[in-house]
Simulated assay, not measured.
Amino acid sequence: MTDEPSAAGAFHPAGLLRYPTYVFGKLHKAVHAQLATPLREHWVLTHLAERAEISQQEMANAMEIDRSEVVRLIDSLEKAGLVTRTRDPEDRRKYRLAITAAGDRLRADTDAKILEATDVQLARLTPAERETLHRLSLKALGYDTEGLPVSS
């Protein structure tokens, strides 16, 4: 991981940089490039850490991805010992997902790496600017920021 935020390259696509969504995408890619863990797997582990057991369909809905993609993700996480998948006793057609202790450790480690990478990418911003950026991003997405943890 580098200690410098990514610098804009020689090519400045002004036509694209005028769109906040493009800029946020570049920011996301810059943070993602510093991590050794696929973010989708981290999102699954984070969601499971915040919930009791949930179904694969509930995970697909929460992540807004196709159920077949969730199956592939869970297959990989289960094989690595990070998630358990058990039959739902009330509906044997469904599986219940839960995070394992190893999965929770990996989630916590990845959380720390994401914070570190975010600190690198947002180094040019003051803590107040970081909090403002985060709160405005949440607001733009329609989240009520009252009670949500916003790191600075």
Rank of each mutant, 00 (worst) to 15 (best):
L106P: 02
T126P: 11
E50H: 10
E90S: 04
W43E: 09
T84G: 00
T118F: 12
P20H: 05
G103M: 02
Y95Q: 15
A108K: 12
A7T: 03
R130A: 04
E4G: 04
A60L: 08
P5M: 05
T126V: 14
E53S: 11
S68K: 13
P13K: 01
H28M: 07
E116D: 12
R18I: 13
I114V: 13
R40C: 04
E90I: 00
I54C: 04
S6F: 15
R87S: 15
R18T: 13
M1H: 06
V44E: 01
R135A: 08
Q57F: 04
L115E: 08
H47G: 10
R92F: 13
F24I: 07
A14P: 01
A14Q: 07
S152F: 03
G142H: 09
L115S: 10
V44F: 04
L45Q: 00
P89M: 13
S6N: 11
A108T: 14
L17K: 11
R124F: 10
A101R: 11
A52F: 02
H32R: 08
D109T: 15
T110M: 15
E90T: 06
A112N: 06
P89V: 14
P149S: 01
A62F: 14
L82W: 06
D3T: 14
D66P: 04
D3G: 15
A140M: 08
L138M: 11
H28E: 10
A102S: 00
H32F: 12
M59E: 06
K26E: 15
Y19A: 01
G9T: 03
H12E: 08
L73A: 15
M1G: 15
V120A: 13
T46R: 13
F11I: 01
G103Y: 00
V120L: 12
E58C: 09
T110G: 07
I65Q: 12
T126M: 12
A98L: 00
L17C: 01
P149L: 04
G142I: 07
Y143M: 10
P13W: 08
E50C: 10
H12Q: 10
E41N: 09
E50W: 05
E146T: 15
V31K: 01
R124T: 13
W43S: 02
D3W: 11
A98S: 14
F11S: 01
I99R: 00
H28Q: 11
